[in-house]
């Protein structure tokens, strides 16, 4: 028997809208049972990629396999739960009625109790869905996406418009769902979110995958380090950029900050120079800086 390791596999995925290529030869693999994040700035192609995985859009070219099946098949709708952006609640139905309705669509629905636990809407079961606050409605939509007890959960920008506290609680829920053996893929433009919740991050920009790996790996692979120091006899600014590995230099009077891929050789050069280098400090860049350097070019 073949064991399917990946919940989602995309091969050379392309989506073209007229002259605009939203997704440009994306290759992605998301492992079963893990939490993965598709991280990128707005307009990077995250929603388009998710829409194709859900079968809402057809790829211009390339291939997608979801749970070993081609995207959008009927069987997948039983097994995949999805939260998309901006969906208004059905008018006229109460929270309980909406959840019961969605539960009726599935072979093996999640219990109403658990859906209410997850959405934190126990106190609002009798309220009309349309009268809920924005945050509550979002939580109801999330519960709707889980109604079928899905083994794969796709979440498009799930925490947009959530406050810090709500976001933290949401991440806990996601981790709990993944610990049941479910696969979760979420898109986000918050790096902090991907770092906090995901086992695997794919960074995308302009429709392409620019980096991929576990958060620590990503940091190690791509992080720039910074060296800041005081130079009493500093050369002209351009000279800094000619030093080994330096990608960016910031000067503020005697204070200089250099950004570089690796710093050992650079430190040696600085120590040997006649620029009067003192007060050296070496720091690794935050993931935030890494993300920014990857997605802007």
């Amino acid at each position: 028997m073949m064991i399917q390791v990946n919940a989602i596999e995309c091969r050379n995925l392309v989506k073209q809208f007229g002259d605009f290529r939203a997704v440009d030869h994306m290759n992605l693999n998301f492992e079963k049972g893990k939490i993965s994040a598709l991280l990128g700035p707005n307009g990077a192609g995250k929603t388009t990629a998710i829409s194709m995985m859900l079968g809402l859009m057809r790829p211009t070219s390339g291939e997608i396999q979801v749970l070993g099946m081609s995207a959008g098949t009927k069987e997948l709708r039983q097994r995949v739960g999805a939260l998309t952006q901006d969906v208004r609640a059905a008018d006229g139905l109460t929270v309980k009625e909406v959840l019961e309705l969605f539960r009726s669509y599935y072979r093996n629905p999640m219990s109403l109790e658990r859906l209410l636990d997850i959405s934190g809407l126990h106190g609002d079961v009798k309220r009309r869905a349309a009268s809920l606050s924005g945050g509550q409605r979002r939580r109801l939509a999330f519960a709707q996406s889980l109604a079928g007890n899905p083994e794969l959960i796709l979440l498009d920008e799930p925490t947009v418009a959530m406050d810090v506290e709500a976001r933290g609680r949401f991440w806990e829920t996601i981790r709990a769902l993944a610990s049941d053996g479910r696969t979760v893929l979420l898109t986000t433009h918050y790096l902090e979110e991907a770092d906090a919740v995901a086992d695997h991050i794919a960074v995308i920009a302009k429709g392409r995958v620019v980096a991929e790996g576990a958060p620590e790996q990503l940091k190690a692979q791509t992080a720039l380090r910074t060296i800041s120091f005081r130079a009493t006899n500093a050369p002209e600014e351009q000279v800094w950029l000619t030093l080994p590995g330096v990608e960016k230099a910031e000067c503020n009077g005697e204070r200089v900050r250099l950004h570089a891929q690796q710093t050992d050789e650079l430190l040696f050069t600085l120590m040997q120079s006649k620029w009067g280098v003192t007060d050296i400090e070496v720091q690794s860049a935050s993931l935030e800086d890494t993300f920014r350097s990857l997605t802007t070019s």
Partner: peptide, 14 residues
Amino acid sequence: QDGWVRLLRLTPLT
């Protein structure tokens, strides 16, 4: 207009 139809397309409801 509200995306309800699109949402239902993601469920097994035909």
